[in-house]
Amino acid sequence: MASGPVTPGADTPVHVALRTTDVDEARAFCRRLYYGPMRIEPVGDPARLEFSADVVLLGPITIGEVGYGTDIRLTIGELETSYHVLLPLTGMLRSRHRGAVVYADPTRAAVYRPSGDIELDWPGTCRLISVKVERGALERELDAGLDQRVISPMPLGASFDLVDGPGRTWAALVRLLLSELRGPDALASRPRMAARWRDMVVSGLALSVEHPYGQEPAGLQGPYRPRTVKRALDVMHAEPWRPYTITDLATVAGVGVRVLQESFRQHVGMPPLTYLRRLRLDGVHAELSRADPGRASVSEVAYRWGFTHLGRFAGAYRERFGVSPSHTLRHRG
C-alpha cells in the first residue's frame, strides 16, 4: 500500500487500497486521493458502512473501484483542477451537476466539468469506477487535434453511453488497466507501458465524451450516436418519471416519430419507450433495494418513477428482474 499520490506526469503507477468501517477514515482517504473539499455523509444505516477502495494513480489520471456498503450523500464544490467520470459497475447513482440530473448505471456514465457543485445520492448497492483526469491533460489532448484552442473548462456532455460505441471501449480499457495495475508484476506497471496506457485513457475519453469539438477534426470523430438520439436519451435520463409520449420525445429530438423510432432501433437496440420503461424499472429496483421496508411501499416508489398502472408495472418488473417488487423490498441489500 502506498502512502500518497505520485507526482503528476510520472509514469510509475502507485496502488493505494483501503477497507474500513470507519466513516472518518473513508473521508480522509477520499479527500487525500481525490478532492479536499468533499463531504461524505451516510444516509443509510451507518452500522452497515463497509467502505472499500482500490485506487491506482498514474500521472494525470486516478482510477479507483469504490463502494460504501450503505447509502451515502456526497457533495463537493467545484473540482477546479480535473475532469471526472463515474462508471457504475452495479446499481444506479443519482447525480446533480450544473443543474443537470443524471442517473448513472452500468449502461451510462456520469461526467463532471471542473466548474459547478456536485451532489451524489450513492446507494450502498452501487459500486463504481471513479476516473479523475487532470484538467490540462484532457484539454491538451483535444487541443492537439484541433486548429483552434479549446475553451477551458470544456463544456462536456453530462453523460455518455457505455453499451456501445467509443464509451463501451473506453470503459473496458479503464477496467482492464485498473485490474492489471492492482496485480503484482503486471506488464502495464512498467513505466514505458504505463505511459502508453495513460495516454490511451486520456485520448479515449476525448473520443467518448460529447463536446462541441467532436465534429471538427476527422481524427477525433468516433461512432457517436446521432444528436437526435442523444437529445431524447438526455431528457429521459434527466427526468425519467415524466409521462413522455413518443410524440414528446420526437419533438425534443427534432425529428418525426418514425425517424426517431428507427434511429433508436439502429443505435440503441430498442424503441424509445421500451428504453424509458427499462430506465424506470432500473430506478425502482435500485430504490427498493436500499429502502426501509417499514417506511417505503412499492406503490409509492413505482408512482415516483412514473408507473401509474401497478398491475402492468409488477409484471414488467418480474419479467426484468425475476422477482416481484415486494420481494426486492423485503430482501433489500
Rank of each mutant, 00 (worst) to 15 (best):
D22N: 14
V16R: 05
L58A: 03
G67W: 00
P8Y: 10
R27S: 12
T21P: 12
T75F: 01
V14S: 13
E78R: 07
L57S: 13
E41K: 12
T75D: 09
I63Y: 02
V66N: 08
G44M: 12
C30L: 15
A47F: 08
L79K: 02
L33H: 13
V43T: 12
R31Q: 10
I76E: 06
A26Q: 07
T12K: 09
P46T: 12
D11A: 11
R73F: 01
E78G: 09
G44I: 04
T21F: 02
V14C: 15
R32K: 13
S82K: 06
E80R: 12
S3M: 11
A10W: 00
I63F: 09
P13D: 00
R73W: 01
G36W: 00
S82C: 06
P8H: 11
M1T: 15
E50M: 08
E25A: 15
V66M: 07
G59Q: 04
V16C: 02
S52E: 15
I40E: 03
M38Q: 08
V56F: 03
T75G: 09
V66I: 15
T7R: 13
Y68N: 08
G59H: 09
H84C: 12
E78N: 13
P8R: 05
A17Q: 13
S52R: 14
E50Q: 14
H15E: 10
R19C: 15
T75K: 09
S3E: 13
L33T: 02
T7I: 04
D24G: 06
G9I: 11
E50C: 07
T7H: 06
V14W: 10
D22V: 14
P60I: 08
T21G: 11
P42V: 00
P60S: 15
R19F: 05
R32V: 02
T7K: 12
G9S: 01
R73L: 08
M1Q: 12
E50N: 14
G64P: 09
L79F: 02
T12G: 11
M1P: 15
T12D: 04
T70I: 02
G67T: 05
D71N: 14
P46Y: 09
Y83I: 06
E41M: 04
G64Y: 04
D71C: 09
E65S: 14
G69M: 00
V16L: 13
S52N: 13
R73M: 04
L57E: 10
A26N: 04
P60Q: 06
C30G: 03
S82V: 10
P37Y: 01
R19E: 15
T81I: 11
G69R: 02
E65L: 05
S52V: 04
A10S: 13
S52P: 05
I61G: 06
E78L: 00
A2V: 10
T70P: 10
V43D: 07
G77A: 03
A47N: 07
V16I: 07
R32S: 15
G4R: 06
L58H: 10
T20Q: 11
H15C: 11
P42S: 05
